[in-house]
């Protein structure tokens, strides 16, 4: 069981890191969205700090939406996914391994890169740790929920807009708790509550989402 998990994880990570360009693209997208935002407003520092939680989380949501479309697509196109479905191994575990690899190559990049944003947006230093923690707890859940939507729209060639319709409403709690924790930290309020809830959502996602992803893959490839 664990061997299967590691094998799929290793394969997907290898594939991701062989195309280093894609990793850089994720990072650049994230930075560009955040960097362009002040250009559309009066560059008022206090206002930027006030909207920074929403801005950072919106950038993460958009990046997730764009990158999630690649989650199952290559495997679907070259037939690997069908082999996964036919194999006697549990599909949910394979799905969990794929989402883990996806997160390590995209979500984790955002977590590591996010301190750069304190320079751009002037986020106070005491909120940086909370921002990284909220991203670290929230982005895996984005991947798990998003993977359900991706799996459902797999057989559709251009599903980008549709995917956003399916998964953005489901992202509401993560957005609220993730940005909420940051907002609380910026204004010096207790932030443990929303972080705990993000952790709870992640636990729920890890337990429940792989089954839903597996079921969705079976429906799409029927």
């Amino acid at each position: 069981m664990l061997g299967l998990f590691w094998a799929v994880l290793r394969r997907d990570l290898l594939l991701a890191f062989r195309q280093r360009g894609v990793l850089v693209h994720h990072l650049m997208f994230f930075l560009l969205v955040v960097a362009l935002f002040p250009l559309g407003t009066a560059a008022d520092r206090s206002m930027l700090v006030a909207v920074s939680p929403a801005l950072i989380w919106m950038a993460v949501l958009l990046a997730a939406l764009l990158s999630l479309q690649r989650l199952f697509r290559p495997d679907y196109e070259d037939g690997t996914l069908e082999q996964y479905l036919l194999s006697p191994e549990p599909l949910a575990l394979i799905a969990l391994a794929k989402v883990t690899a996806y997160w390590l190559s995209s979500g984790l990049v955002f977590v590591i890169a996010s301190p750069l944003l304190i320079l751009l947006l002037g986020v106070p230093p005491q909120a940086v740790g909370v921002m990284m923690a909220s991203l670290a707890l929230g982005t895996p859940t984005l991947g798990l929920i998003g993977a359900i939507g991706t799996a459902l729209t797999l057989s559709l060639p251009r599903a980008g807009l549709l995917l956003s319709l399916l998964i953005f409403p489901l992202y509401v709690p993560i957005l609220i708790f993730g940005a909420g924790a940051m907002r609380a930290a910026i204004s010096g309020l207790p932030y443990a509550g929303p972080l705990d809830l993000l952790g709870a959502l992640l636990a729920l996602g890890v337990i429940g989402a792989p089954w839903a992803i597996a079921a969705a893959l079976r429906i799409s490839l029927e």
Partner: peptide, 23 residues
Amino acid sequence: RACALLSLVGVINVPIIHYSVDW
């Protein structure tokens, strides 16, 4: 069948969404 799965995932999320929006 895809809609069936989506509404099932959605209904698990409805109370979570309501609670989070409340908070």
